[in-house]
């Protein structure tokens, strides 16, 4: 989501149930000094085709319990760095969910959309309207807006900026 809440079109990358943070970013890259360097290894074990082909504005479509496992904030950070627009899943593990919100990566819980969206579908998302448009299949899915409480953090770009405004 950019500053003007403008909608982008991106490609859907689908992953399976219980997609854990070790699969998003394996532990051995956790010591790299920057997110930029870590990001080159995102999903490499399970989707070696991801990094060479992913484009800014693409999105990840998970299943149940996306982001389970360790508390590594580097997992949502590398996705955001790569330019992943959002993650849509049937459900999220709670630490990942919090981390995503706190770094300003909006995540959407929408089981129906997960079932309908296919690998490679062109997707457009309007966070303002709460609408996901599947351009490949000519369908739309709607999602409830974030609670105001969390939207405040996402809007300023994450907890860092939020805390800065209070420090």
């Amino acid at each position: 989501m950019d500053k003007n809440n403008k909608a982008h079109t991106g490609k859907a990358w689908k992953v399976g149930r219980h997609f854990d943070t070790d699969q998003i970013l394996p532990s051995q890259y956790m010591l790299f000094p920057t997110i930029e360097e870590m990001a080159k290894h995102a999903l490499e074990g399970i989707r070696p085709d991801f990094i060479p082909n992913v484009r800014r504005g693409d999105l990840l479509v998970g299943d149940e319990n996306f982001g389970c496992g360790s508390s590594r904030e580097q997992a949502p950070r590398v996705l955001k760095y790569i330019g992943i627009e959002t993650v849509i899943a049937k459900s999220f593990a709670s630490i990942f969910f919090r981390n995503a919100i706190n770094i300003g990566l909006p995540v959407i819980v929408l089981p129906d959309a997960v079932d309908r969206i296919r690998e490679g579908d062109r997707i457009e998302i309007s966070f303002e309207k709460g609408v996901i448009t599947n351009k490949t299949q000519g369908e739309t899915y709607t999602f409830p807006p974030f609670p105001e409480f969390l939207m405040g953090i996402i809007k300023v770009g994450g907890l860092l900026q939020y805390a800065k405004s209070r420090s």
Partner: peptide
């Protein structure tokens, strides 16, 4: 357990 940005906010 929490992420490192949240931890930084608690430290402050």
């Amino acid at each position: 357990g929490i992420g490192y940005t949240e931890m930084a906010a608690i430290l402050g």
